[in-house]
């Protein structure tokens, strides 16, 4: 019964609207995406394995996934903090800060990339003191990749957690306090469990976005093979050498990972919906 109408409706245009939706979706998204998968079937299994287990490819996948995971984790912690501060405290410029949280959604990634490079380079505003004080280099190292991915993923956790915190009844906290809970206990036992589904959803969204990110990373990463080269860059490098089979193999690995993440996000959202319904 896929895409079959379940019951009659007096509203017009179902066939036209759904037909156009499915056609447009198929032509622009589904068919091109399956083309990538179909391409891998023209490659032998051994060749596919050889492509994706080459040391440079493995290193790049490790970097993309590792840095994305670290960035998403940092964003989970600080995103929760930012959401809390925006919901609970009134301070000058709060509305401006609130609006600017979405900057990574609106700012083109290339602009973010060169801006982050400029300030985190060895002679940059933040890079220079950091290097002098701790000896840590940010730009042109894996740490730079992490910084760019943190920027890109910043709004996700804030924007998924914020509405949940806004809905959180004050009574819950007050009840916990009246029962003798300390602020720390109130946070860990009452607030955190309530926002957990949203927090995990935001984490997964930030992670998924960061894994495939390209524009903001390539300027700051330095792109040294085996050290600071990300997986999307490997795909581009292979394409430039007309190694379509190699590019497609890496792409398919990343696509499968993205689809699994998408599935995870859907499960998390289903979970949080059920959680919200159970509370009522």
């Amino acid at each position: 019964m896929l895409f079959m109408r379940r019951s009659h409706s007096v509203l017009p245009g179902f066939g036209l609207a759904l037909g156009f939706t499915l056609a447009y979706l198929s032509l622009l998204v589904l068919i091109p995406l399956s083309a990538a998968f179909a391409r891998t079937f023209t490659i032998s299994w051994e060749a596919f394995l050889a492509h994706v287990t080459a040391p440079r490819v493995v290193a790049s996948l490790q970097l993309s996934f590792g840095a994305a995971l670290a960035a998403a984790a940092v964003n989970a912690v600080f995103g929760l903090l930012v959401a809390w501060v925006l919901v609970r405290y009134r301070f000058p410029g709060r509305r401006v800060v609130d609006a600017l949280v979405d900057l990574p959604f609106a700012l083109p990634t290339a602009v973010a990339g060169i801006a982050l490079t400029a300030i985190y380079a060895g002679n940059g505003w933040l890079g220079e003191p950091l290097l002098a004080l701790t000896g840590v280099k940010v730009a042109f190292t894996p740490l730079g990749v992490f910084v760019a991915l943190t920027f890109i993923g910043l709004p996700f956790v804030v924007r998924t957690v914020q509405p949940v915190l806004e809905d959180l009844e004050k009574e819950l906290e007050e009840a916990a306090q009246s029962l003798g809970a300390t602020p720390a206990q109130t946070f860990s036992r009452v607030i955190l469990p309530t926002v957990m589904p949203a927090l995990l959803t935001g984490f997964a969204l930030a992670f998924a976005r960061a894994v495939g990110e390209y524009g903001s990373v390539i300027f700051i990463a330095g792109n040294m093979p085996l050290v600071s080269e990300i997986a999307p860059l490997i795909i581009i490098a292979k394409l430039e050498q007309y190694d379509y089979a190699g590019a497609t193999s890496v792409a398919v690995v990343m696509l499968v990972a993205s689809f699994l993440l998408l599935l995870l996000v859907n499960l998390l959202q289903w979970w949080s919906r059920r959680y919200a319904e159970n509370r009522d």
């Binding site: 083309a35 990538a36 495939g212 999307p232 394409l239 379509y244």
Partner: peptide, 19 residues
């Protein structure tokens, strides 16, 4: 399926049209 393009790396979005 409509959300799918959001979870695909931009580089892969370009790649599929090259393919």
């Amino acid at each position: 399926l409509i959300d799918l393009p959001f979870s695909v790396s931009p580089v892969i979005s370009g790649l599929i049209y090259v393919l």
